[in-house]
């Protein structure tokens, strides 16, 4: 088999996002921020969100360190939720978490995730699920204004 199976994990779009991540910067002003760490590998994400008074994501940016999967996932996440309402973004985070562990979802929900839906193959690589979900966890917890630093998924 060798590395050919890797093609399903590291699709070109994923490598593109990792090489040229979108919205990887800090925000001049933000309403919701969080730093989330994955203690098993040391990955860190700092996520900043600017919500409008009616709870729409006006701007979002992230900084931090991580592997190809975590960086591209964060990039695709920011693309997907930009301009969405808090409610919509939380629903997308739920869809993504479910998808990552192999739960079935309506195609319409997956379409909402845009590029991020491509990570549905992640469940074939159980050791890497946390890499993909870290930024979505950060999103969810920032929006819910939970500020604990450590990923709850830590084993």
């Amino acid at each position: 088999m060798g590395l050919s199976k890797l093609n399903s994990l590291y699709r070109e779009v994923i490598l593109d996002h990792a090489d040229h991540p979108h919205h990887k910067h800090t925000l001049a002003e933000s309403t919701n921020t969080i730093t989330l760490k994955n203690p098993t590998c040391g990955d860190v994400i700092n996520l900043e969100i600017k919500l409008t008074p009616d709870d729409k994501i006006a701007d979002i940016g992230f900084t931090g360190d991580g592997c190809t999967i975590s960086q591209s996932s964060a990039s695709m996440m920011t693309d997907a939720v930009m301009g969405k309402s808090k409610e919509e973004a939380l629903k997308m985070a739920k869809t993504f978490s479910d998808m990552a562990i192999g739960k079935e979802h309506a195609q319409a929900d997956l379409d909402e995730l845009q590029d991020a839906a491509i990570l549905s193959n992640i469940m074939q690589f159980p050791a890497r699920i946390k890499c993909a979900t870290l930024s979505w966890w950060a999103l969810q917890r920032a929006l819910l204004e939970e500020t604990d630093e450590t990923s709850e998924e830590e084993s």
């Binding site: 590395l3 890797l6 994990l9 590291y10 590998c41 991580g66 592997c67 190809t68 999967i69 975590s70 690589f125 050791a127 890497r128 890499c131």
Partner: peptide, 9 residues
């Protein structure tokens, strides 16, 4: 390359 990507490969 992040070492996790290396280890998966």
């Amino acid at each position: 390359l992040h070492p996790h990507d290396v280890a998966t490969a």
